[in-house]
């Protein structure tokens, strides 16, 4: 079955994410737009995933707990997990590798942790938009240790992408998928980097504001609409 997906969405916990990106707004907006499956991928944290998971379950939308990891070379990687527990354990690990720089909300934005009623139950004090201690060459194996899968984010962007920062993408990294933000660039990128022909190409919104969430365009063809079926597909 073909599922409309968006596996790269930020909440109000990402400093650059709008305060309107609350768990309920994200899920309800995604449902309204007709998505079958979404993931939450805040920068270097999964702490808003429990709230989104509860709301998604009530609304009958498949939810994949995730994170947009910043590697030590500042390459952004979408990480997706089979369970909330795995995502949260990975989140703890990532935090232990980050520099203890405090967020300055007036400059970077607030980092709000919410419950399932959109109540703010805490603020992440460590600045989340810094590099973790995980290198890009180790990321696939590291995420596998937490039963997750991962792929390089917005490879067509001029910053924080594997192509802008490292210049290449090849089998060495072990990725099975890659994300292109502007899918019209797919052919051009494949010509320049033929290895992309061997990967599944995904396109997500990377929404930081509700208005960045776009109408469903891309689909994945999976056996059934479950987290397991989706991640098994992305991982094969």
């Amino acid at each position: 079955m073909k599922l409309h997906y968006d596996f790269h969405i930020h909440s109000c916990l990402s400093p650059c994410g709008d305060s309107d990106m609350t768990p309920n707004n994200i899920v309800n907006f995604a449902k309204l737009m007709g998505y079958d499956a979404i993931a939450l991928t805040d920068h270097n944290t999964a702490l808003n995933c429990p709230a989104v998971a509860k709301i998604a379950e009530k609304n009958g939308i498949t939810f994949i707990p995730g994170m947009e990891l910043c590697t030590s070379e500042e390459v952004h990687i979408v990480c997706l997990f089979y369970t909330l527990e795995d995502a949260l354990s990975f989140s703890d690990y990532v935090k232990s590798t980050m520099p203890p720089i405090k967020n300055k909300p007036s400059v970077f934005g607030e980092q709000l942790i919410c419950d399932e009623n959109d109540n703010v139950i805490g603020q992440e004090e460590t600045l989340l938009v810094t590099a973790s201690g995980i290198s890009t060459e180790r990321v696939v194996k590291k995420v596998q240790e937490y039963n997750g899968i991962c792929y390089p984010a917005h490879i067509d962007r001029s910053s924080f992408s594997i192509l802008s920062n490292l210049g290449v993408i090849d089998e060495y990294f072990g990725f099975k998928c890659a994300e292109i933000f502007d899918i019209t660039k797919e052919d051009e990128l494949k010509q320049k980097h033929p290895y992309l022909n061997q990967l599944k190409i995904l396109s997500d919104s990377d929404a930081h504001y509700l208005e960045n969430m776009r109408l469903p365009q891309q689909t994945v063809d999976v056996a059934e609409n479950t987290v397991k079926a989706i991640l098994d597909y992305l991982n094969c």
């Binding site: 910043c70 070379e73 500042e74 520099p99 720089i101 810094t130 590099a131």
Partner: peptide, 8 residues
């Protein structure tokens, strides 16, 4: 150019 590095 590595922002996290510059930051510290």
């Amino acid at each position: 150019d590595l922002l996290s590095w510059v930051m510290s």
